[in-house]
């Protein structure tokens, strides 16, 4: 184990991934030699065009998908099976519809055999933290999209994972809700001190939330650049353009990213 390993919450080493092609066609290469680190306590975003395999990286870190080649380390330990020590916030909230909101938040603790009283107390804390107090007994269908998302974040916070994977968690929300969620996420993370790997295709979101942005190319994807974002925190999520240095940071990411989009210029 090198010193390098122990400093990183997540470490991707020479990852390759290809998916079996349709009948008679060769396998489809998706990821091509991806290597990067998520340093402990840092927030790293991965952006890239849709279909470039960003989410696949999260699947690997969660141990849900075996990469064709390469290795993923979580706190220096090789991920080889379902990773039950990591936090995961999926694209859709994926609350269990047959459990009430607080039962959903309690679920990871229930699975870990935590006693009922302690479970309820810890879940309540998490629910309060995401501002859902008063909706404990509601079933998911009775909650709005933003509330479901908050509940799914509470469900992840409740077992205090040191590393969190987030797969375009705010993609399905309207613009206002989204800014509020980004703001709250920043506040919560500042308190938790967790490391985050965040997948998005929204450059503003990536720049505003991250300490570092990994830009991926189109399929078969490789890393085009890793752009460090050193804007001071806390950042005002509601007015990104008022933050000194935001425009420059955005530009650095965009100048790499644009090469991957076929943008037709006005003549």
């Amino acid at each position: 184990m090198t010193d390098h390993d122990t400093q990183s919450a997540l470490s991707f080493r020479a990852i390759r991934q290809s998916f079996p092609g349709l009948a008679g066609e060769p396998p489809l290469p998706v990821l091509n030699d991806i290597s990067f680190e998520v340093p402990r306590g840092k927030f790293v975003s991965v952006i890239g065009p849709s279909g470039c395999g960003k989410s696949t990286l999260l699947q690997m870190a969660a141990g849900l998908l075996k990469q064709t080649a390469g290795q993923v380390f979580h706190n220096g330990i090789l991920v080889s099976d379902v990773n039950r020590t990591i936090g995961f916030v999926p694209q859709q909230a994926q609350l269990l519809p047959w459990k009430t909101m607080i039962e959903n938040v309690e679920f990871p603790l229930l699975l870990r055999g935590v006693k009922a009283a302690e479970r309820r107390a810890r879940a309540q804390q998490a629910v309060d933290k995401v501002d859902l107090t008063g909706f404990e007994g509601h079933y998911p269908y009775q909650l709005s999209g933003g509330m479901q998302k908050r509940a799914s974040i509470a469900r992840m916070l409740v077992y205090k994972p040191d590393t969190i994977l987030m797969d375009e968690p705010f993609g399905a929300l309207d613009a206002q809700t989204r800014m509020v969620m980004q703001h709250d996420l920043q506040t919560m993370l500042a308190a938790e001190g967790a490391s985050v790997l965040f997948v998005t295709h929204d450059i503003t979101e990536a720049v505003m939330l991250s300490d570092s942005v990994v830009v991926m190319s189109r399929r078969p994807a490789r890393i085009l650049a890793e752009v460090p974002i050193d804007l001071p925190r806390p950042r005002d999520m509601f007015e990104p353009h008022a933050i000194p240095g935001f425009a420059e940071a955005y530009d650095r990411v965009w100048s790499v990213f644009r090469s991957e989009l076929k943008v037709r210029r006005a003549a």
Binding site: R84, L96, W98, L111
Partner: peptide, 24 residues
């Protein structure tokens, strides 16, 4: 995806049956 998520949240096979498959 629901099953995968439940596994990452900590569910073993027996818990998957009781909390995911049967209610669904």
């Amino acid at each position: 995806e629901v099953v995968n998520l439940a596994m990452v949240l900590g569910a073993n096979e027996r818990q998957l049956g009781r909390h995911i498959y049967l209610p669904a």
